[in-house]
C-alpha cells in the first residue's frame, strides 16, 4: 500500500465567502505508523476523510495528487471507491456511536465485513466477531455482541468500531481519535494489536490523536497540523526536539499526575504559526 497526497485543499462555500479548511497538505506513506497531531479545527479529520473521498457533500476538494496505490481517488468511479472504503482502507471515525448503525447489534456490525469480504458463513462470521471483540479487550464479548450502539459505553463503542475496521483486514487503517475514551490499560492492549498487524501484515496506520506521548511512543513519524497546513514533520521519537513554536507550546500544556501546577500554560497563538517551520 502506498498513499500519496500532494497539495490537498479542502474548503466550504458559505454565506460569507469561501472558507478554506485544509490548505495545501502533502505527505506520502507506506506500511508505517504515521501520527497526525494538531490544533482542534486544523483539518485533521477532513484530510483523513479525503483519502476515502468521504468529505461532506458541499466540500470543495482539489489536489495535485491524491493516490491510493494506483487509484486516483479524485477521479475514481464509485465502484473503485467502494473497493477502497471499508475494505482496503478502514476509517475509524471520531464519533463512534454516531458512526455505528443504530439498528444493528455490535456483533452484527463486526460480522458484516467478515461475511462480505472474507466470505465467511453467517454462523462463522458471528463466532469470529465475538473473537474480534475479545481481541479489543471487551469484557464478556458474547454478551456485548448482542447489544445495540445506545447500550454500549463510550469506550465500548470505540472498540466495536475498531474491531469492525480490523475485521475487514485493511491495508491502511485510519484511526481518528479512536482510543480517546479508553483508559491507558485498554489503549495499550489495542495498540499492541494494531502494532502486530502493521509488522506482520504490512498494514499502514494513520493515527490522529491529541495525545502527544501516545503518538510519540507508538508512531514512526508525526505530522503536526495547524490552521489547515502541515507545519512540521518529525520522527516520532524526536517530538520533544521539535522546532515549530506551536508544537513546542503543545508539549508544555498537558497537566501532569506527578508534577501538579495550579494553572496550565496556554498558547499565545501567533499569525505566523500557520507558516511551515
Amino acid at each position: 500500500m502506498q498513499l500519496e497526497i500532494e497539495d490537498l485543499h479542502i474548503g466550504f462555500p458559505g454565506p460569507r465567502g469561501f472558507a478554506p479548511a485544509v490548505r495545501g497538505v502533502s505527505f506520502a506513506m507506506g506500511a508505517e505508523k504515521l501520527g497526525i497531531v494538531g490544533e482542534s479545527g486544523s483539518g485533521k479529520s477532513l484530510t483523513a476523510r479525503a483519502i476515502l473521498r468521504l468529505t461532506p457533500p458541499n466540500a470543495v476538494l482539489r489536489a495535485k495528487r491524491l493516490r491510493f496505490d494506483d487509484i486516483d481517488v479524485l477521479s475514481a468511479s464509485p465502484r473503485a471507491l467502494g473497493a477502497i472504503r471499508g475494505r482496503r482502507a478502514g476509517l475509524i471515525l471520531q464519533d463512534p456511536k454516531f458512526a455505528l448503525n443504530p439498528v444493528m447489534t455490535a456483533g452484527e456490525q463486526v460480522a458484516e465485513p467478515l461475511r462480505l469480504h472474507k466470505g465467511l458463513s453467517r454462523r462463522a462470521a458471528r463466532a469470529a466477531a465475538v473473537e474480534m471483540l475479545a481481541q479489543v479487550r471487551i469484557n464478556d464479548p458474547a454478551a456485548v455482541a448482542h447489544r445495540y450502539p445506545h447500550e454500549l459505553s463510550g469506550g465500548m463503542g470505540q472498540r466495536v468500531m475498531i474491531a469492525m475496521m480490523l475485521a475487514g483486514d485493511p491495508e491502511l487503517l485510519i484511526a481518528d481519535e479512536a482510543t480517546s475514551a479508553l483508559d491507558a490499560t485498554v489503549q495499550a492492549e489495542i495498540l499492541r494489536l494494531i502494532e502486530d498487524l502493521v509488522s506482520r501484515r504490512g498494514m499502514g496506520l494513520i493515527l490522529i490523536s491529541h495525545d502527544l506521548p501516545l503518538v510519540s511512543h507508538f508512531c514512526d513519524r508525526v505530522l503536526v497540523m495547524y490552521a489547515g497546513r502541515v507545519v512540521e514533520a518529525v520522527p516520532a521519537a524526536e517530538l520533544r526536539k521539535s522546532r515549530h513554536p506551536y508544537t513546542q507550546g503543545l508539549l508544555l500544556c498537558p497537566p501532569s499526575l506527578m508534577r501538579p501546577r495550579a494553572r496550565l500554560p496556554v498558547l499565545a497563538r501567533q499569525p505566523d504559526w500557520a507558516e511551515v517551520a
Binding site: Q94, G154, E177, A181
Partner: peptide
C-alpha cells in the same frame, strides 16, 4: 462532566481546565 476534554487538543484542554478552575 463526562470526558469533557477527551476530544480536545492539549492546548485547548489547558484553556478549558483553567476556565473550569
Amino acid at each position: 462532566l463526562d470526558e469533557p476534554t477527551s476530544a480536545l487538543d492539549v492546548s485547548i484542554q489547558a484553556e478549558i481546565l483553567n476556565l473550569l478552575a
